[in-house]
């Protein structure tokens, strides 16, 4: 059965659909073949990135606003997945070798004076601009601000118990997004309220998730302090 393409889809997008789908499948296949022949874990982790690219093209090939909206959560999920697997890999090796290394290995000494004064300024600007953008993109911008603040404070000791509170708030805020989404269907008259609930719920959620990268390393901070 051939499903007719609606007239609103531009002919350029329709003509590019088949090549895009095949490119996506081909890239996914190349990545998966690489994973199949690879024995070392860190290489498998890097090749997972390639398979994720194949997924992105297949979604993007639809070429509508819906595709764009689906790419954003796909990116965030891919980011979280790579982060979690890399942390797992590192903590497993550290347990096996019974050794410790720096949380963020850098060739420079980061204990500079500018990291005592600048982070607050940068974090405030990034969070404010992220709040202005709202949604996934704003969340990523604000998350980068929070992350920069936390990383520059590592050398002066990070209050690890604050992070537990933040992670709890992120889950509550996720419910705001759900309520906003439900409002679209239950009470379409309040669409503006629903839109803002969804946009800012998502903004705070993504910002905290990006800022929470340190939570995974919380145990290592505790170990470092002892």
């Amino acid at each position: 059965m051939v499903v007719p393409v609606p007239d609103v889809v531009s002919p350029v997008v329709v003509s590019l659909y088949i090549p895009a789908i095949f490119t996506g499948l081909l890239v996914g296949l190349i990545g998966l073949l690489g994973i199949a022949f690879q024995k070392r874990d860190i290489h498998v982790l890097i090749l997972t990135d390639i398979v994720g690219l194949g997924m992105l093209i297949i979604v993007a090939a639809v070429g509508t606003d819906l595709a764009e909206a689906l790419i954003l959560p796909g990116l965030v999920v891919e980011l979280a997945e790579i982060l979690a697997i890399s942390e797992l890999l590192m903590s497993r090796e550290m347990r096996k070798m019974d050794k410790k290394v720096d949380l963020i290995p850098v060739p420079l000494n980061l204990n500079m004076e500018i990291f005592e004064t600048a982070p607050v300024f940068f974090a405030v600007i990034l969070v404010a601009y992220g709040a202005f953008l709202s949604g996934f993109t704003g969340g990523a911008v604000a998350g980068a601000g929070i992350l920069f603040y936390l990383i520059s404070k590592i050398y002066r000791g990070v209050p690890s118990d604050i992070w537990e509170g933040i992670s709890a708030t992120a889950v509550v805020v996720w419910c705001l997004w759900l309520i906003g989404f439900l409002l679209f269907f239950a009470a379409p008259d309040y669409w503006l309220l629903g839109l803002f609930l969804a946009a800012f719920g998502l903004f705070i959620e993504v910002a905290y998730k990006a800022g929470l990268i340190g939570v995974i390393g919380r145990e290592e901070f505790k170990r470092g302090k002892e």
């Binding site: 982790l45 790419i71 954003l72 980011l79 790579i82 890399s86 993109t137």
Partner: peptide
């Protein structure tokens, strides 16, 4: 929007991967 978010996300993925590689190499 997807392009801008992808640029930001690929930057962070790069940082995560390089951090994992360097840490694992320091562990030998």
């Amino acid at each position: 929007v997807a392009l801008l978010t992808y640029i930001a996300a690929s930057l962070i993925i790069m940082m995560i991967l390089l951090r994992a590689v360097v840490r694992l190499e320091e562990l030998e």
